[in-house]
Design a protein around this nucleic acid. Structure first.
Length: 282
DNA sequence: GACATGGGTAAAA
DNA sequence: TTTTACCCATGTC
């Protein structure tokens, strides 16, 4: 078992057993490490301590329900400003593929791809000269299959396996944003509606949640929550477009392409990171 | 557990 | 090219 696999397994275990609040030793034993070594390893890879992760998990349980009331109204307020608001989008720009590019089926576009390990599982990444164009977990569908789908979408593009090019798209998720860093751009194709939804997702602050219907309202189509669900589900760029921050109005988790367990892990990780700043307790 | 609902998609007309 | 039928990561009664 490599280190990334250990982290992922540990996170999964903690999510599954959150109610028992397993001790550090117990979790460490799951991945066959000493408590001491595991603690250090986890911090290094996840950027937070195992304890904080576990705390966020319980905190989040109660909080998700509260989220539907208070936090969500904040969020919808932020979304309401989304016309020009760049308040929360963390220097991430979303660029739509131009009609010309689309018509040429990506002719002349070079796409670099690679697979990288993350604490949440391995990730397939593809980038063009204009930005990240695809990012998705490798799970039941293999990396080869993911690549095959991409090439089918852009039959005229040239593809090259180049992990060195794609690596930073993943690394930047897990390193602190240092001042003066260039904006990150995402280069995607989608219908107008989908692009609008994805842009709205970028305005949800890290560690907070929005519901499908709040997004719909923010778009000025209060009755389109279900359509929003579809668009969210079509998100081509996992994590950077934070589709994992959308939950049902009831507080239930909603769905996730790569499994609800993964959605919860990512949410917990973000909440845990975020609570570094607020330092709340319940 | 039904049903209104709006957007995407593929297949038919 | 337009229509239609079917699928849904929702929300509400």
């Amino acid at each position: 078992m490599n280190d990334y696999a250990r982290i992922e397994k540990a996170m999964t275990y903690m999510v599954a057993n959150a109610t028992e609040q397993p001790s550090l030793e117990t979790v460490a034993a799951q991945v066959h490490l000493s408590a001491y070594h595991f603690q250090r390893l986890f911090c290094r890879y996840a950027g937070i301590s195992p304890k904080r992760f576990l705390q966020a998990l319980t905190l989040e349980r109660g909080k998700q329900l509260i989220a539907s009331a208070e936090s969500l109204t904040n969020t919808v307020h932020a979304l309401g400003l989304s016309g020009g608001s760049r308040l929360y989008d963390h220097f991430v720009q979303l660029e739509a593929v131009t009609p010309g590019e689309y018509k040429r089926q990506g002719e002349g576009v070079e796409i670099a791809y690679g697979v990288h390990e993350t604490p949440f599982g391995s990730m397939f990444v593809a980038v063009t000269h204009r930005g990240i164009c695809r990012m998705g977990f490798v799970d039941a569908t293999s990396a080869d299959e993911l690549l095959a789908r991409l090439t089918k979408e852009w039959p005229r593009s040239t593809f090259c396996h180049s992990p060195d090019t794609t690596r930073c798209a993943v690394e930047r998720l897990f390193t602190k944003p240092e001042g003066g860093r260039a904006a990150l751009s995402l280069h995607v194709t989608g219908t107008n509606f989908q692009i609008a939804v994805w842009r709205a997702l970028l305005t949800i602050p890290e560690g907070q949640f929005a519901s499908y219907s709040h997004i719909a309202q923010a778009l000025g189509r209060p009755k389109s929550s279900r359509a929003v669900g579809n668009a969210v589900g079509a998100n081509p760029i996992a994590l950077w477009i934070p589709c994992h921050r959308v939950i049902q109005q009831s507080g239930a988790l909603g769905g996730y392409r790569w499994g609800l367990e993964k959605k919860q892990i990512v949410q917990t990780w973000e909440v845990a990171k975020h609570s570094l700043l607020i330092g709340t307790h319940s």
